[in-house]
Design a protein around this nucleic acid. Structure first.
Length: 98
DNA sequence: AGCTTGACTAACT
DNA sequence: TAGTTAGCCAAGC
């Protein structure tokens, strides 16, 4: 699989995250079946502009340091419960089944 | 070919 | 609960 295809796959995965849900970088990597969390993060940095990138957060439930503030707002706008700057993964974690 | 870097993680302390 | 450490994977030099 070429890097370009990998990027597409990741972007697609992110696009398929429904409003009100979030996924971790690791989840995306796992879903795509290739690369790792860091690769996903790198892609979001470059090509994330066209997808709901704010629904992708760290496994700890906290968004990337760069965009914490903005991202939290967007998430809340999606109806995601955010407690003290952290997302409650136990309840809004994305399930590919949906 | 070897080293550095980073929207990451999980395990330890 | 908060810091640190080691592992991770691909890209760029």
């Amino acid at each position: 699989m070429d890097r370009e295809e990998y990027v597409e796959a990741v972007l697609q995965a992110v696009e398929s995250i429904p409003p009100g849900s979030v996924a971790t970088y690791g989840d995306i990597a796992q879903y795509v079946g290739q690369g790792g969390p860091r690769q996903v993060g790198a892609i979001m940095r470059e090509y994330g502009g066209g997808v709901p990138w704010w629904r992708v957060i760290r496994a700890s439930g906290v968004p990337a340091d760069e965009v914490v503030d903005h991202q939290i707002e967007l998430l809340r706008g999606d109806g995601v419960r955010v407690t003290n700057g952290k997302v409650d993964l136990r309840q809004v974690r994305w399930d590919p089944e949906d």
